[in-house]
Amino acid sequence: MEVKYRVSDIDSEGIVDAKMFREKLLSKPSNGSAGRTGTWRLYKPVISYDKCTKCGFCWLYCPDDVITWKPREYPVIDMEYCKGCGICADVCPVDAIEMVLEGE
């Protein structure tokens, strides 16, 4: 019986495989690299801008980096990716953020 290898052209296949698995295995950080995480949300944060003091706590604590804020400006939440965890509402020192059930 002759010894046979099931992969005939191993040089070129190996190099193609290496390129393919690298593309699948590695990922660059970018907006929404894990998909539209806003769809995971049950409660959405709603900011009362009349109460907000522009302190930036919500921006600082947001674990998903979906709040944009600059000193002396109001924060803005990107609802495409906000998962509705409620941390911003919890840390807001003036209770300016309310968690509202989606669809209401």
Binding site: Y5, R6, V7, I10, E13, G14, D17, M20, F21, K24, L25, L26, S27, K28, P29, S33, A34
Partner: peptide, 27 residues
């Protein structure tokens, strides 16, 4: 140079990556 190794992805990607290992083992 930031990138992640093995981030969460579609199930089919997991299986495809196993198949590349299988082929590499054969080679």
């Amino acid at each position: 140079e930031s990138f992640a190794v093995g981030n969460l992805g579609p199930d089919e990607v997991t299986m495809e990556l196993r198949w590349y290992i299988w082929r590499a083992m054969e080679r």
